[in-house]
Structure formats: structure tokens, C-alpha cells
Amino acid sequence: MTVKIEVIQGGVPHNTILVKGLVASLVFIYLTYLNTLLPAGSPPYFAFFGGLAAVAALWWGSHTIKHLCSYGIGTGVPSAGMMSFGSGVIAMLLATQFGVGAPIVAVVLAAVIGAILGFVANNVLGMKIPVMIQSIIEMAIIGALVLMGLAALMTGGFTFQSLVTGASLPLAGILNVPNYMGSVIGGCLLAVAFMLGGIAIQHPFNACLGPNWTQDRMLILALECGFLSMLMAAIMSIGLIDTGAALISVIIAFLGWIYTYDLFFKLAKRDAAAWLDSKPIPEVEGH
């Protein structure tokens, strides 16, 4: 669509959303570290904080996409989400090697990768979009944080060690060899987290674009997409971590999803021209 979508009027400014999303996401990821403080051998009851980190990052990400795509980038909104997670997955996996510093390192690495990719897109490819570099930096950070959050949700930790450690149940039937195949990386559940985030980040803006775009409705939809992704990751985590800990994540994600889904229906009803059930096309003057 060549029509330039109007700039944000009113509402929460982008920088406020940026700061809130970044801080909330980092704090939630670090809260999963509480799992290591639990007595040895106890299940990772705090894994659900990883999912909340992903929700916070996706909430911020939907607004970044809106910020960038307002300029008409020449190709679809979804491709921006794919780029975000393509750079995010690389930064996030490298960062997991840095132990307890991983979330911070992920943010820094993603910012560096994003800055160079943004410079390349804007200057070498000559796109000349004012917010391009900042947006790609933000999206790479979001991609890394969402993936790290979902990985922490599925394993209870965010270090490389926990991502390659297999399920407690024997998948291959060989007990004395560590079962790397049944882990987040070995089973490539990272690919699922990749796609869950890649769609959830772009869907709120893609689904709400139009002349009557409203900020609160899009952000609620972003939370809804986030909780839905968290719910799916939580269901997958039953196969990897203790069932009790996984069920806590499932229940929290489900409650969050139900609440935001219902709220989104209310906001859509508020914004819609009419809310009809089994009614014909209204007569519009002139047609």
C-alpha cells in the first residue's frame, strides 16, 4: 500500500514503550534465575517468568513494527518480523555462552548486529528511512529477548548448558549417555520459538492497520499474541521440565490469554463501525 499510514497521534510515546518493554523483559528473564537458588533437585518453578519476558518484549516489538512500517518499507510487514528474529536468534545463542550475564550480553550483541544491519539497509541499499537503524536495533533486541524468554520458559534457565540438557524422560532409551537430542536446541524447539515470535511480533500491527488504527487496541492484541505464544511454549515445556512447574506456566499463560483476548474483543467492538450478527450489507448512499 503506497498510502503512508499516519504518524502516531496522542497515545503513549514510542520511547516510553521502549523503556518499559526493555526493562520489564530483562527483569522477568532475570527472575527465572531464581530457579538456581531453589534447593538442588527441585523443579524450576520460576520458569514462567521467561514467558512473561517474551510477552513484554513482544508488546514493545509490535509498536516498533508500527513505528518502522509507517514509512512504507517496500515489502510486507511480516518480512520485518522475520528479519528481527533472524538476527535475534544469532545474538541470543551466542549470548547464552556468557552464563549469568547472558540477557545483558544478548541485548548488547543484538544492538551491535542490528546497528550494522540497519546501517547496511539504510546507507548501502539506500533506503533512507529515518527510523530504520533504530528500529532494526530494537527489533534485533526484541528477537533475542523473546527467544531467550521462551527458551527460559521451556528449560528453566537461559544458559547454553540448560538449552542443550535433555528431557528428564528417556527419549532414545539410552540412560547413561546425556540425552542431547531431547533438548531445546537438540530437538530444535528453538525453530518453534522462532516462528511463534516471528508471527506474534508482526501480527498486531498487520491485523490492526488501517485508517482507524488505535494504539491501545494494537497493544492489547500484542499482549494477546504474546500470551498465546507463551501458552504454546508452556505446553511444549511439559515434555522438557517438571510437569508441576510447566503447569504453572500453562495456567498463567492461559489466564493472561483469556483476559487479553476478551479485552481485545471489547476494544474491537468499541472501534468498529457496527457490530452486526447475520445482517445484510448496509445501504450506503451513492451505491
Partner: peptide, 24 residues
Amino acid sequence: VYSTTAYLGRTASLAKFGQPVYID
């Protein structure tokens, strides 16, 4: 779930042109 939110979101954003949301 994604289908419903996509339909509601897009249609609600077209309110300016009088496009109603059809629940059926």
C-alpha cells in the same frame, strides 16, 4: 485465534468507511 483477531482488527480499523464487523 489468530483468524479471529485478524478479522476483528482489520475490520475495526476500517470503521471510517462504514465496514461493519459481522459476527456470523
